[in-house]
Design a protein around this nucleic acid. Structure first.
Lengths: 182, 182
DNA sequence: CCTTACATGTAACAAGTTACATGATTAG
DNA sequence: CTAATCATGTAACTTGTTACATGTAAGG
């Protein structure tokens, strides 16, 4: 159910095509919501069917036409209702922690590779989030309520990754200790 | 695919019934993996079908019989292979952040209730994790590799929630500022 | 009497993933 | 010539959720 509203929230910010929405999920919304392009197109079709959206076909000279979706009044109302009703918190399902849990069957070198990979991913993501913070949210106190709340969504991503990186350090230290005194 | 391995990892630690596995997912594994009892029973049936598990029927005097599942050699081998191959990191899908992203449609009082609820949930969870830490992982340096890695899985839960609570404070401060100077 | 814990499932449906499909343009 | 970006989809499959179903025992 929530994908619908993630899409509507993104379209409420600004009308967009399925392609652009997919990109937003992968970039600015990476710490908020995730969806593949297949999911996006399918759900957009349903939202359109339910009259929550309108399409505007944008002709392009060289590239194929694209469909820009807009929230309708009904869509906005629907979104507003959802926003103001309690939502569950996300379920936790982390393969890396499953691995650690069965740590006695886990090879140390494989684990170290996993850690290194994850660290690189997180650092890249953190760099990206910080660049957004720097360019759009320099003095938060000057921002409108809307943007301050968006900023807090971004802050969540930054603090989460920062805590994740600290934990990775802790994990690496543990592995070194285990290597030294086996 | 990963539910299979989460179950196998849990059964590798100790044989258990579907009921017990469901409970573990809700308690000790709350920061690792999540699954409803329906999912657990369905997947256990599949694992049994694939000869990754064995059942032992445990007769009980007053309560109905229960089925205790054990990992087979094939199951253990399968798990080991999975553990030593790279796994994707969990996708991010957080309804609360979707709400913040569309913050201009969000009522402040509703948001404050969400925050309060989440804080209570997290505090309870943190208390629980800390109690495990205190009773089972007092001097980590004395522990075997297996338990030190399990401890690091627990540490992930503790550090994640701690960071989450700090972020919630930041969010509350922001809301107060917005209330004071509208 | 009512709820919670114990104990195990089936069925229908919604959400998410993977594979396949097509076609143009731009950069290396 | 090859890969990447833009742009949109269909189909099959797997995973996860919700609703329904049943029965015992203990505690308030």
């Amino acid at each position: 159910m929530a994908l619908r509203y993630a899409l509507m929230a993104a379209l409420h910010e600004a009308p967009a095509t399925g392609y652009e929405l997919t990109q937003r999920f992968r970039s600015r919304l990476a710490n908020v919501w995730n969806a593949s392009h297949q999911q996006v197109y399918r759900e957009l079709a349903r939202l359109l069917e339910d009259n929550k959206l309108l399409v505007e076909t944008v002709a392009q000279s060289d590239k194929p036409d694209k469909k820009r979706y807009h929230l309708t009044i009904a869509g906005r109302k629907d979104l507003e209702e959802w926003l103001n009703t309690p939502q569950p918190r996300p379920p936790v399902r982390d393969p890396l922690l499953v691995k650690l849990f069965a740590g006695d069957l886990l090879d140390s070198d494989v684990l170290k590779e996993d850690i290194e990979k994850l660290k690189q991913d997180w650092l890249a993501q953190l760099g990206y989030f910080r660049s957004i913070e720097h360019t759009y949210f320099r003095q938060p106190s000057a921002l409108s309520r809307q943007y301050r709340l968006q900023y807090m969504a971004l802050r969540r991503g930054i603090t989460q990754i920062t805590a994740g990186l600290e934990w990775l350090e802790e994990l690496e230290t543990t592995l070194e200790e285990l290597d030294d005194a086996p």
